[in-house]
Design a protein around this nucleic acid. Sequence first.
DNA 1: CGTTATCTTGACCGTCGTCAAACAGGGTGG
DNA 2: CCACCCTGTTTGACGACGGTCAAGATAACG
Lengths: 235, 235
Amino acid sequence: MSLDTMVRQLGRHAELSDDDRRALAGLPFIRRVVKIGHYLARAGDQACEHIVLLSGYAHQHKTASAGGRQIVSIRMPGEAVSSACLFIDRVDYNAQALTPIEAAVVQRDALRDLIAARPAVSKAILMATLIDAAISSEWLLNIGRRSAIARVAHLLCELAARMDTIGLADGASYQVPLTQEQMADILGLTGVHVNRMMKQLTESGVIARHGRCIQFPDRDRIARIAGFDARYLRP
Amino acid sequence: MSLDTMVRQLGRHAELSDDDRRALAGLPFIRRVVKIGHYLARAGDQACEHIVLLSGYAHQHKTASAGGRQIVSIRMPGEAVSSACLFIDRVDYNAQALTPIEAAVVQRDALRDLIAARPAVSKAILMATLIDAAISSEWLLNIGRRSAIARVAHLLCELAARMDTIGLADGASYQVPLTQEQMADILGLTGVHVNRMMKQLTESGVIARHGRCIQFPDRDRIARIAGFDARYLRP
DNA sequence: CGTTATCTTGACCGTCGTCAAACAGGGTGG
DNA sequence: CCACCCTGTTTGACGACGGTCAAGATAACG
């Protein structure tokens, strides 16, 4: 197992020379396998590590005092589980495995040195951070100002687009790595209502489903319903 | 007019030496006065500038195709209007003056050089970015998982805390720089409903109001209602 | 093959949105 | 100095979107 997935993902954010890529791929790390549902970080924990997903999905979530749970980010292969951990030692959200995961615990000092020495790497990581921020803003718009049906459609569009760029959607269909309950925790809805919206999208032919495998018979149609414009995913 | 406000704000995020401070304060910039309601940046615009607020407030917002408007960030004196603009030339949100503004258009190259040369400055700016991200996450939790009354209370707590750290609240009371309509656009509510919640908070004695000047007779009480814990504002 | 998590559906209810109108304040111009 | 207007605040009546509760059907998993 290598850091290949990470290098490829960073390469999408900035031009990396072969030297840059070799340096990144040569970073010292420890491989870690995490079972579904297990935590990668906990809110308030000291000493957090820089963990990069090699395969599988994770999410970050926060909880309200009333007991509600809000997922604030979905992490995909090649991305850091918690980008803040590169520079600070405490984090105010939980990170949890959405599926079985292979991850790399990268030596922070080595990566920081590499960032200091190589502008292209620094730029790639900065870009990743900016895209994360853009996604957060889009989620705010989604939860705050769109109807339930549009929210669900938008999430499906975003997941499809992101998985497409890392080669995990075959263009025609993809596997949603979330339960409907988890989708609800992203969208500020309840599991029951997400189910109703999925049913409505299915019955009106906007999406087709076999289990969690999803297809868009008409991309423009679902994008219109969702108000989805993929530009925020690539600054 | 000087960049003093900016230097002080950055100094809160990282230890800055006197040299660091002098270098920051000596950055070349152009002063710009912006009237209330005018735009500082528009979504999709090329060539965006690095603008720092010296006095007054601004906000970033996005719009849904249905016409809804979501404010994704409030910018306060000392903060950059659009932190992404330091490194990229396009932005996917609008930035608008909430009050009359004095701003500094800082030469990007000079600031970038300074960041490259001075680790402490680099760290301060990075920290500012991480705090912005933390605020976004907290807003997601707020909109997604809290009741209307808690959302309004939480926003009031956050504004008070942020204005307090920059010396714009006198400890006992502060001026909300937002109309109720704008608060609604932050919270994913309508202006009418924000008004109802403000009334409820006032009548139950959780807050006291004279126009837009607000006091908290009992900090713990409003914090409890809001589920507010200020730690996310200072990683 | 049994057990648990996830999905699905229905009935009912509450929070919040919508629409509309009155009211307060603050700035402008006559 | 007062009349006027514009923006923002306040209030009420009504309706809809989405939440809650509960039960049954499927699918995943050991």
